[in-house]
Design a protein around this nucleic acid. Structure first.
Lengths: 244, 244
DNA sequence: CGTCCTCGAACTGCATGCAATAGACTGCCT
DNA sequence: AGGCAGTCTATTGCATGCAGTTCGAGGACG
């Protein structure tokens, strides 16, 4: 299918496959990525693979070498903390924009529904984490949409491309952890508070809550780091420096 | 030079040339970009051009069409305002990080020097705008460096890729405007205030000043929009919707 | 024994050919 | 005359061949 159909294009296949390979740690960080072997492995030609390499370089997962070629980036814990804090800043801005730009309360209907579903999940005796992560992602997407800013949407998408910075990434790996429930309760409390602030037009408050909400992910990271089984479920864990 | 030497590569040539063509308005916004003719025009083959197209798409200057190919993006005034506000948010975070992460005052030496040179330029009876823009860019780069965050640096680079969002873009087009001097005085005042806040470790204040500093660009934009000669000097002006 | 130089192979970046599709144009039918 | 279907061309996405360079290994020299 040489033209069109982006979803089924070789380039897309290469990009998704390459990302998966990197997150799984099958390509050692700080090591040159072999273009030829990779093409075979992904079942694509070198041309679309090259495009995929450029894409991931833009996302910050690969770094171009001076002499040509790419290496997989590795991340220190400080890098991860920075990415999470940055996501907080951007989602804070999204929350503020949402509050400032709300035209009618009916725009919040979608987010309200998601919040209520989250309530239901958290209220259960033993919450289904997968479902929570799903709804959580939906909540965050909805909030960004309410900001009505393409530039902001793109900026957030870029940050979230880093595996750890994503809203649900750290939650998903916690299935084995006992303190997860507390975290969920706090997170959901913040979801509600943010929604209220947006509805009331309190931009500054919404912004601050979103920032603090992101910092919850930082707390989660610390929990995950000391748990072997949780670490193995964390996507992109092999890219972390000074862990293991 | 098939390998290495990124600066002289065909891909770089294509990327820079394409950006220039777009900013100059030689490619009509919202119109399909012809791959073949463009390759000839830029003096490169289709392969590196394709890479350049993907790059500019990531930067937000091009948009991929569902059926294949790309179009040049156009921007409403709201889009520009958003990009500027977003830059303010990110530079605000940079200023806050700089304040929070300052280890010794000597780290500020570079920024102090630039600030003093800016003082000298602004103090002149008729300031040389080009020189101001140059130093202004250097100031902003220096501030971002002090934040010591790769993720933040990349995020800012992405936003600034949009022609209007860049710190000096709107200043450079104002040569013919009379109120320019006032703007320079205010901007330089904010530079100094930010520097002081960072030195004192006042992160929150530094952040707010940086945000307000960016909003100065929004004010500039309004000045530029009502001046025909200034508009012609604005890079990327042809991409603006509802202007002219 | 260490260092420098030379040779080689492998790999990257680029150019081009090919196949398949999307859109335009024409002609026909209603 | 307007709409629809068939065809046709221009254009994109992909595969592959080629050339040049970089990095490693091996040997020679100090």
């Amino acid at each position: 299918m040489p033209r069109g159909d982006v979803a089924g294009s070789q380039t897309t296949k290469a990009t998704l496959g390459l990302r998966e390979l990197i997150f799984a740690g099958e390509l050692a960080p700080e090591e040159r990525v072999p273009e030829i072997g990779l093409a075979e492995r992904l079942g694509v030609s070198r041309t679309p693979l090259r495009l995929a390499l450029a894409t991931l370089a833009h996302e910050g997962l690969l770094r171009a070498l001076p002499g040509g070629g790419f290496v997989v980036c590795s991340f220190s814990l400080d890098d991860v903390a920075d990415a999470i804090e940055l996501r907080g800043v951007l989602e804070g801005t999204a929350a503020r924009f949402a509050a400032e730009r709300l035209r009618s309360e009916s725009e919040l209907d979608g987010l309200v529904a998601v919040t209520e579903q989250l309530d239901a999940v958290v209220g259960k005796r033993s919450p289904v984490l997968e479902r929570f992560v799903e709804l959580n992602d939906e909540y965050h997407r909805g909030l960004v949409d309410l900001a009505k800013s393409d530039a902001l949407t793109r900026a957030i998408a870029n940050v979230v491309a880093l595996p750890f910075a994503s809203p649900g990434a750290l939650l998903a790996s916690q299935a084995a952890l006992t303190r997860e429930q507390e975290v969920l309760v706090v997170a959901q409390h913040q979801h509600r508070a943010m929604l209220d602030a947006v509805r009331a037009g309190h931009g500054a408050r919404a912004e601050e809550i979103a920032r603090e909400h992101a910092r919850l992910a930082m707390l989660n990271l610390e929990l995950v780091l000391v748990s072997e089984p949780a670490l193995e479920r964390l996507p992109g864990a092999p890219l972390l420096r000074g862990v293991g």
